[in-house]
Computed example of a mutant assay.
Amino acid sequence: MRRMIPYGVGIGWRPEIAGFVAALPGLRFAEVVAESVHAHGDLPAGLTGLRERGVAVVPHGVKLSLGGAEPVDPARVTHLAAVARRLEAPLVSEHIAYVRAGGVEAGHLLPIPRSREAVDAVVANVRRTREELDVPIALEPIAALFDWPDDELDEAAFLTEILDRSEALLLLDVANVYANARNRGTDPAALFDRLPLERVAYCHVAGGSAHDGVYHDTHTDAVPQEVLNLVAELCARHRPPALMLERDGSYPPAAELTAELDAIAAASGYPAITRAGA
């Protein structure tokens, strides 16, 4: 039986920062975009090095379209399962979202209505995916810039029903929680009180920026203090989960990235990632 993600701080592995990631002495786990890894052939050297160090590596899918009305593409499911086996991953993760419909690719994660019909579609697609996986799957709610007018459930009820019926784990993106609450004018910490936090497999932590009164989850900005405060709120409610810095461009100097990782560790009570053997 494979181990789950170790408690502690991790980072999203990207080729542009592979050298930086390889040099982190206290790294507990990393995440890689599943579609960027070949199911056969050589792994990128940076991922091979992490595996040799015993760092857990989680494939994170972005193309399954679990929230689509159409069944998931079997070839994409097969690829995700194969990458998980290659990496000896403890689990995989994907989004509660859709990215295609009627053969048209959106090229972006799109929100689905919080309706019972949408719950049925997600649960069916998760079950189809789980049939081929050897490991658990964690589902990530996305940051949405709008809500559908035919929503029947609030966020907490919608997510809880999906998790209960699909028997999936939760990938809780704290930055997404902050973005959605800020844009909707709600209390982000209140969501934690209604989610099944015992099902959290790990968490994303990322930065964003506001434009024209709307907060965007960019992954190219530094993690704001408000998100770090929300990490602390989450950890005060439940045993601190594994926490991962998600960065997807505009990479700062190594010292700034290290400071972000250590700030996440401090907010959760974990040792600094820069400490060898942490």
Results as ranks from 00 to 15, higher is better:
A210F: 07
L245F: 07
A124Y: 10
A190I: 08
L245G: 05
G269F: 08
A267K: 05
G207H: 08
G249T: 14
R14I: 06
M4H: 13
D147P: 05
A272S: 05
L145E: 12
A263V: 01
G208F: 10
G68T: 03
P113C: 00
V223C: 07
A267V: 06
E226W: 10
L87P: 08
V37F: 03
A175N: 15
E140M: 06
V126C: 12
I11K: 09
V21D: 06
G213T: 05
R28W: 06
L110G: 02
R86P: 13
L163S: 07
A121K: 14
R239C: 12
G61V: 00
I162Q: 09
S166E: 08
P253G: 02
R128Y: 07
T220W: 00
E246P: 03
V83G: 01
P113S: 12
E233Q: 12
T258E: 10
L43Q: 06
P241M: 01
V231C: 04
R114H: 14
A175Y: 05
V99P: 02
V77A: 05
E226K: 01
R14P: 11
T274M: 12
A121D: 14
A181T: 02
I11V: 14
F29M: 06
D73S: 13
P15S: 13
V58C: 14
V135S: 06
R100S: 15
G185S: 05
E131A: 14
A267R: 00
I264Q: 04
A206P: 13
R239P: 00
E246K: 07
G102P: 02
D221Y: 09
V123N: 13
E155I: 01
D262N: 11
G49D: 15
R28E: 08
A97L: 03
N125S: 12
L195M: 05
L171M: 10
V83Q: 05
V57M: 02
L197E: 05
A39E: 15
G10V: 07
H40Y: 12
A56Y: 02
I162H: 11
A121T: 11
A30F: 01
A56S: 10
C235Y: 02
P188L: 11
N125Y: 11
P90A: 12
P252E: 04
A101R: 14
F146H: 10
I5R: 11
V227W: 13
Y7G: 09
A222N: 13
A101T: 03
R194F: 02
L27H: 07
R116L: 06
P44I: 09
G49K: 13
G249C: 10
